[in-house]
Design a binder for these strands. Structure first.
Length: 247
DNA sequence: ATAGCTCAGCTATTTACTTCA
DNA sequence: ATTGAAGTAAATAGCTGAGCT
C-alpha cells in the first residue's frame, strides 16, 4: 500500500469515525478538540520503539487494513506523523478507544458541577460540554464514572465502619461472657438478669453499661420501644450501623 | 393489562496513559 | 535512560428500571 492509499484509508476511516485527520499546520482552524501531543499521530510510539509494531497492528486493525508489509507500515507512519488527529464535535461513530486526558481546568469545573448536582439533565450536559469544549457524551461519561467513584468511596467507608463495629461487638461479647462467668461464680443476686434472651442484651459503648431491652419491645420496631425511665436505668440502645449509642 | 420501545443510570470491564521503583 | 508493575481514569458493553405508546 502506497502512502497516498494509506492517507486515503486514514482519511476515510477517521473522517467518518471518532477522530478526524487534519493536515498540518492547522491547529487553530480545526473544528474539534485538539488532542494532547502524546495523542497526536494516532498515538504512534517512536518508530523504532518496541511498542511500534504492536501499535501499527492495532491501527491497521482499527482501519481494517489487510496489508501486512513493511511498505504499508512505513506509509502509515509517514501519513500519520504528518497529520494532527482531532476529536470530533459530535457523538457520531465513537468506536475508538483513544483516550482524551482532561486538563486540570476541565476536571476542576466538572468537580464543581458535580458538587452542585451529581446528575445532569440534557440541557446542563450540553451547556457544560460546550463550556469545556468536550462532547456531551464525554461529560456524561465523566459524571457516570464520578458517581461510581463516590459510591465506591462510600462503600469503603461503610465497610470500615462495619469492620470496627464488628470488632467492638466481638470485644463486648467477650467481656459479657467474662462478666457472666464471674457472676455465676459469685452467685450474684443480679445473675437473674442474664437469663433474659441473649438478643435483648447489649452493652452501651459510651458508658459500657449492660443494657436490657424487655423481650416484648425487642421484637418490635423501635417506634414503641420504652423510653429511658430515669438516670442510671439500663435502657441504653446501641445501633451497630452508626456505631453510636442512643443513650 | 401488557408488549415493545427508548432513554438514563448503573456496574463491570477494558484500555490508554501516568507514575514510580 | 529504560522498563515493567501498579495505579488512575476515560471509555465501552451490557443490563435494569422507568416512562411512554
Amino acid at each position: 500500500m502506497e502512502q497516498e492509499e494509506v492517507g486515503l484509508a486514514l482519511g476515510l476511516s477517521l473522517g467518518s469515525g471518532p477522530y478526524q485527520l487534519k493536515e498540518q499546520p492547522s491547529p487553530s482552524s480545526h473544528s474539534g478538540t485538539l488532542l494532547e501531543p502524546s495523542s497526536l499521530s494516532l498515538g504512534l510510539p517512536a518508530k523504532d520503539s518496541p511498542a511500534a509494531p504492536v501499535r501499527i497492528a492495532a491501527v491497521k486493525r482499527e482501519l481494517r487494513m489487510e496489508e501486512d508489509d513493511e511498505a504499508t507500515d512505513r506509509a502509515l507512519y509517514s501519513v500519520a506523523s504528518s497529520a494532527l488527529v482531532v476529536a470530533p464535535d459530535d457523538d457520531e461513530g465513537c468506536n475508538s478507544r483513544k483516550k482524551l486526558r482532561l486538563t486540570k481546568e476541565q476536571s476542576a469545573l466538572l468537580e464543581d458541577r458535580f458538587k452542585e448536582h451529581s446528575t445532569l439533565n440534557p440541557k446542563q450536559k450540553a451547556a457544560l460540554a460546550k463550556q469545556l469544549n468536550l462532547r456531551p457524551r464525554q461529560v456524561e461519561v465523566w459524571f457516570q464514572n464520578r458517581r461510581a467513584r463516590t459510591k465506591l468511596k462510600q462503600t469503603e467507608v461503610d465497610c470500615e465502619l462495619l469492620k470496627r463495629c464488628c470488632e467492638t461487638l466481638t470485644e463486648e461479647n467477650r467481656r459479657l461472657h467474662r462478666e457472666l462467668q464471674q457472676l455465676h461464680a459469685l452467685n450474684h443476686p443480679h445473675t437473674a438478669a442474664f437469663f433474659m434472651p441473649a438478643a435483648t442484651l447489649s452493652i452501651c459503648p459510651s458508658c459500657e453499661r449492660l443494657t436490657g431491652v424487655p423481650a416484648a419491645a425487642a421484637t418490635t420496631n423501635g417506634a414503641d420501644r420504652p423510653k429511658p425511665s430515669g438516670p442510671g436505668r439500663a435502657t441504653h440502645l446501641f445501633n451497630p450501623f452508626t456505631n453510636s449509642a442512643a443513650c
